[in-house]
Design a protein around this nucleic acid. Structure first.
Length: 919
DNA sequence: GCAAGGTC
């Protein structure tokens, strides 16, 4: 029994699993009692222990992450309750949300009975912040608590015992750093989200959803840069100008097989040079082996698995989304099959018993025998895992924690993910694969070509890590000085290709590199892009921006802000570090950041026309004619006091503004103009008590929040009979004329854009400028050509033209563009607008040789060979091939060249002997 | 209804 001097200590961990581990380690499972708390997930463990010789009765329980949330005061919570700009200074408070109230009550009840509070939160900034949330809640129950912090970096016996024997005080600075982040995220996120949602949702017909009203156009310091990565790559692809190149390829057949030699010069962009060199090779085709190099190559196993790698590999190997991967991993963790799945750590601690983990897997029917070989010292397969250099000091790399040959209730994805975790772990503790690589270099007429092949000598970890392969191309045997005549020698052309769309794995890498999100939240940010209709993911897990996503990024880019770039987050990360170190004050960082962001917000609001312009490129404005018709039918406000014959009715004008006019128009011109800031107006059955002659029916108005001062309500029941001061004031302030938006370029009939993504300068786009994407001019006379970063990016290499032809390859439309590269400046070409199609054709190629695509000059010597330029993404692009079987060339001469000089056309010599040769 | 961060 505890003595009267025994200290009762309440221990709180960040999650139930840690509470259980800490209790198990400290009690050594002796005298450990478990009871329920008010929250069914967070149990309470009790046992006796001694800290620094002091007997303690230990109570160990947990929270589940943050206990509190930051929110605005009640008055600012409703979207229309305030100007979004007010959210930069509106009061905020931390509160315990409904689903955490049970945990709060448990903590307070237990704290009342305790002397000490020991905080076992994860040892990172968020953990420190949660620690202070726990302190706040517990001290509300007991002001006398002595508060301690246990610092540990792994759930091992030594770490936990050391932590409890060396308790310290919690670090307020770390917690402050997180407070800063939370407040900035909330204020920026809420203000921009409310602003752009309220501004755009009612103005445009977003054709991808039938529920326009509930659409939320969110902004967040993580989600927008993530969208930025997707859009930036998409623009890079759009602005890519295919460039034609030439290369010489050589093959040689022997009894042992075929060797393919590639030209050491690689791609040559100057056709004449390539032809001259090719001519030299054709004239002296004898190949001499100048180098044979054989060396051993090692392919190392991957580093131990952390969250981001798990997500990337599951996406690559199984095409599982990162969000789904984390859901499945969480379930495997909850049921005890794998370790904690949210970890940055990619190195194992020296204290981890790696062999014990392997031993468990020996019984598996598929990889069990590999695990047995690993443990057999005679096999020499074991290798201590290398370190990836990251350690979050809280969790080990993801590894199997319990053997399973497939539990009941597992889906295919549970099987796949568990298999990945096990095989990855077994690979990490295995020897690298060993290969023999052979490189052969040959010389033909002074030009060098090379071929390489590799055979695997020892597969080692590749035996178990079936997700990776290592090329096993065999080369025939060659010896130094050997000579042979190539079987084929061809001059091949190709075109440069744009990079592919970002895959989920690429996107995670971009985010990781730029510090966007954490290992536990990155998949949420990616999913948010899909949920918000900002991006789509295709079957190959590649992301494209939607029209909405592209328009939003385009608008902010045109405003000149880099809100869609990762810099804001990086800057915040720097500031948070400074707060954590104590070199900057919490208040000072908050004030400075919010001041900057508010200025940016106000400026963005002034420039809202950019948002409308960008949206206008892709979406239709809501038609107001229907509303007008409906409202002119029945909405009588009063009898006309001028003609005294007709009724005055509420009308919506074609420009969207409201008026109350006499139905006797045009004979009677009595009219009451209404403020220009009204978004909705409806005549009610309420009758004004002061205006006469009556009845004058009152009108329910809704004003646009952003167009009236913040001290006016957006909802107003008003009267047009002359008694309504509010209405008069708003007419004074807002006027009754055209709103800003009516100065936008009108969208003529037929300019409706389809719902799919439209590349810059698309011929289908009609009169949209390829540079700035506005209407009314072409890219050649674009006034913004040098102003916009995006315009610069898009117009970097080529300018869009208006002319288009049908694509010879896929049938879609090609647009005529002008090259701007050194070699082909001013030369015009057609390129297909269909993203998947890479068709490209010089305009002069059509003129020179009808029916021959892109090889006009290549085939000038009379070649009959030609083919289209189309090829799948990522394939080697080889199209027109001007080549010949060398044996036949040597026997009969070159039928394709007519044995004349390619350089000057003189039949008396070949190009290598051409007197004009000056390359 | 808005962010991002914990975690169940």
């Amino acid at each position: 029994m505890p003595s009267s001097r025994t200290i009762r200590a309440l221990n709180v961990a960040e999650k139930p699993s840690v509470a259980k581990s800490v209790a198990g380690i400290l009690s050594q499972n002796q005298g450990l009692r478990v009871r329920e708390g008010r929250s069914r997930f967070n149990k309470i463990y009790e046992f006796n222990y001694a800290i620094q010789g002091q007997p303690c009765q230990m109570l160990v329980t947990s929270v589940t992450g943050h206990l509190m949330e930051l929110e605005f005061d009640e008055r600012y919570k409703k979207w229309y309750s305030c100007d979004p700009a007010d959210l930069y200074h509106a009061p905020v408070r931390k509160h315990v949300p409904e689903d955490k109230v049970d945990i709060k009550r448990t903590l307070q009840e237990e704290a009342r009975k305790c002397h000490w509070l020991i905080l076992w939160l994860d040892c990172d900034r968020e953990g420190e912040n949660i620690a202070f949330e726990v302190v706040q809640v517990c001290t509300e129950g007991n002001h006398q608590l002595n508060i301690w912090r246990a610092r540990f970096s792994a759930l091992t016996d030594r770490e936990i015992h050391e932590a409890v024997q060396n308790l310290v005080r919690p670090n307020q600075l770390f917690a402050d750093a997180v407070d800063v982040r939370q407040e900035i995220d909330l204020r920026i996120g809420a203000s921009f989200t409310r602003f752009q949602t309220m501004l755009l949702r009612d103005a445009f017909n977003f054709d991808f959803t039938s529920d326009n009203k509930s659409l939320v156009l969110s902004y967040g310091p993580c989600q927008f840069p993530t969208l930025g990565f997707v859009v930036e790559r998409y623009w890079e692809i759009q602005s890519h100008e295919p460039e034609e190149f030439w290369t010489i390829n050589c093959s040689h057949n022997s009894d042992e097989g075929t060797a393919s030699f590639t030209w050491i010069r690689g791609h040559m962009f100057d056709y004449t040079c390539a032809v001259i060199i090719y001519e030299m090779c054709v004239q002296e085709p004898n190949a001499t082996v100048t180098k044979v190099k054989q060396q051993e190559k090692l392919k190392y196993p991957p580093y131990p698995l952390n969250t981001i790698e798990l997500e990337k590999r599951a996406s690559r190997y199984f095409r599982m989304s990162s969000e789904h991967t984390m859901k499945v991993a969480e379930e495997l963790y909850q049921s005890g099959f794998i370790s904690y799945p949210r970890t940055e750590t990619d190195c194992f601690s020296d204290r981890t018993d790696l062999r014990a983990i392997v031993e468990e897997q020996q019984q598996h029917p598929t990889w069990g025998s590999y695990a047995q070989r690993l443990l057999d010292p005679g096999a020499g397969l074991w290798r201590n895992p290398s370190s990836g250099g990251h350690d979050d000091k809280a969790h080990p790399p993801i590894h199997p924690t319990k053997f399973s040959a497939g539990a009941s209730g597992w889906s295919q994805d549970h099987h796949k993910l568990y298999e990945l975790v096990v095989r990855h772990f077994l690979a990490c503790v295995s020897q690298p694969a060993v290969g023999a690589e052979t490189t052969v270099e040959i010389d033909i007429a002074g030009e060098l070509f090379s071929a390489s092949g590799r055979v695997i000598i020892l597969k080692n970890y590749l035996d178990v890590y079936r997700f990776e392969t290592w090329g096993g191309l065999m080369l025939p045997t060659y010896v130094f000085g050997q000579q042979f005549i190539p079987t084929t020698l061809t001059l091949d052309s190709g075109v440069t290709r744009p990079p592919p769309l970002l895959s989920e794995s690429d996107l995670l890498s971009c985010m990781d590199k730029a510090g966007i999100g954490t290992d536990a939240t990155m998949h949420d940010h990616i999913k948010k892009l899909l949920d918000r209709f900002y991006a789509t993911k295709d079957a190959n897990t590649r992301f494209s921006p939607t029209n909405l996503g592209e328009a939003l990024v385009m608008a902010y880019d045109d405003m000149g802000y880099e809100l869609w770039k990762p810099f804001l987050r990086s800057m915040m990360e720097g500031d948070m570090k400074a707060v954590g170190m104590g070199t900057k004050q919490k208040g000072e960082v908050l004030a400075a950041c919010l001041q900057q962001m508010k200025a940016c917000f106000l400026d963005a609001r002034l420039n809202k026309i950019k948002l409308f312009e960008a949206m206008d490129l892709f979406f239709e404005r809501f038609s107001r004619s229907g509303i007008e018709e409906q409202q002119t039918v029945a909405d009588v406000v009063r009898q006309c006091g001028v003609c005294q014959q007709s009724d005055m009715v509420l009308k919506r004008r074609p420009d969207g503004n409201f008026m109350v006019g006499c139905l006797g128009f045009p004979q009677c011109r009595n009219v009451v103009w209404l403020p220009g800031s009204i978004s909705e107006a409806a005549v009610t059955t309420n009758i004004c008590s002061s205006c006469s002659p009556g009845p004058v029916f009152m009108i329910q108005f809704k004003f646009r929040r952003l167009e009236i001062p913040s001290n006016y309500n957006v909802d107003h029941l008003g009267c047009i009979g002359g008694c309504d001061e509010t209405l008069k004031q708003l007419i004074d302030i807002c006027g009754t004329g055209s709103r800003n938006l009516s100065i936008l370029p009108a969208r003529g009939p037929g300019s409706t854009t389809p719902s799919g993504n439209i590349p810059a300068g698309n011929a289908r786009h009609g009169s949209v400028c390829g540079n700035c994407r506005q209407t009314g001019h072409s890219s050649n006379d674009c006034p913004q050509a040098s102003q916009s970063g995006r315009a610069r990016l898009r117009g970097m290499n080529a300018q869009s033209g208006e002319s288009s032809i049908a694509c010879n390859s896929c049938g879609a439309s090609c647009v005529l563009r002008t090259a701007n590269t050194a070699n082909n400046k001013g030369r015009r070409f057609y390129s297909c607008q269909l993203q998947e199609c890479n068709f490209f054709m010089w305009e002069d190629a059509i003129n020179h040789s009808a029916g021959v695509l892109s090889g006009g000059r290549a085939n000038a010597g009379g070649s009959a060979s030609s083919s289209t330029r189309r090829g799948g993404r990522g394939q080697t692009h080889r199209s027109s091939s001007r080549g010949a079987d060398m044996a036949s060339v040597l026997a009969t001469g070159d039928p394709q060249s007519g044995r004349r000089c390619f350089s000057c056309g003189d039949p008396s010599h070949f190009a290598n002997a051409c007197p004009n040769r000056g390359i």
